[in-house]
Each structure stands twice: as structure tokens, then as C-alpha cells.
Deep mutational scan, measured.
Amino acid sequence: MQIFVKGLTGKTTTLEVEPSDTIENVKAKIQDKTGLPPDQQRLIFAGKQLEDGRTLSDYNIQKESTLHIVWR
């Protein structure tokens, strides 16, 4: 499925993911596209910070959802 990651600059990155992907895995995909290391990424969805060990489905993140990224 496709999801979007929007940064503070307003730039949006598209990712191809599975609902079973962990947040850690998603951060690795973001690094592949942007070069930003996972330890500098904070992902937010529906006002919650996403924890590395959880999956996208744990947070009810579905296709075409938009996550927000904040740099540490």
C-alpha cells in the first residue's frame, strides 16, 4: 500500500509499505529516500508519536494515510 510522509518543509515523500511493517522498517525506507537516519526521525500520526516496535496496523494506518515527520 502507499502512504505519504510529510515533513516540516511541506515536502511529501511517498512510500510503498505493508500494514505489517514495523515503524522501524518504515524509518529505514524513509532513510533510503531522504538520507535522514532513523535515529533522527520522529513519526507522528493522529497526534501520536509512533514507536519503533509497533506496526502500521497497530496504529490503524491505512493506504494513503499521511504521517508527519519531525527531525530530532
Rank of each mutant, 00 (worst) to 15 (best):
G53P: 06
T12C: 09
P38L: 12
D39S: 13
D39A: 12
L43V: 05
A46C: 07
F4D: 02
T55I: 06
P37A: 11
T13I: 15
G35Q: 04
P37N: 09
T9L: 12
R72Q: 14
G10C: 08
L36T: 07
I69T: 03
I61A: 01
T13K: 05
H68L: 14
T9W: 15
A46I: 06
L43P: 01
L15S: 00
L56P: 01
K33V: 11
E64G: 15
F4E: 03
T55V: 06
I61E: 00
I69R: 02
G47R: 04
I23K: 00
W71K: 09
P37K: 11
D32V: 12
K29D: 02
K6N: 06
D39P: 07
F45I: 03
S65M: 11
N25W: 10
D21Y: 07
I30D: 00
D52Y: 05
G7C: 11
R72V: 15
H68R: 09
H68Q: 11
G7A: 09
L8S: 09
A28C: 07
Q31C: 09
Q31K: 11
Q62A: 10
T9G: 15
L15Y: 08
Q40I: 09
V17W: 02
D39I: 08
I61S: 00
L56Y: 00
D52T: 06
T22L: 11
S20T: 13
Q41V: 15
V17Y: 03
K63P: 15
K33I: 13
P37W: 10
Q49F: 13
N60L: 06
I44T: 08
F45R: 02
K11L: 13
Q41D: 02
E18V: 12
K11F: 14
G47F: 04
A28T: 09
Q2K: 13
T13S: 08
K6V: 15
A28G: 09
L50H: 00
M1T: 03
L56A: 02
F45Q: 02
S65R: 03
S65Q: 07
K29V: 04
G10L: 09
K27I: 04
M1E: 02
K29W: 04
Q2F: 13
Q2A: 07
E51V: 08
I61L: 04
K33T: 07
I3F: 01
T9C: 12
V17D: 00
K11A: 10
Q2T: 15
G53E: 11
S65A: 10
P37L: 09
T34R: 03
F45G: 02
T66N: 04
Q62R: 09
A28Y: 14
D32P: 03
L67N: 01
Q2P: 07
E24R: 14
E51S: 07
I61P: 01
T12H: 07
K33S: 09
P38I: 15
D52I: 05
L8H: 13
T12S: 09
P38E: 06
L36C: 07
L56M: 05
T14V: 14
P37R: 12
K11D: 11
D32Y: 12
K63Y: 06
E64H: 14
I3E: 01
H68C: 09
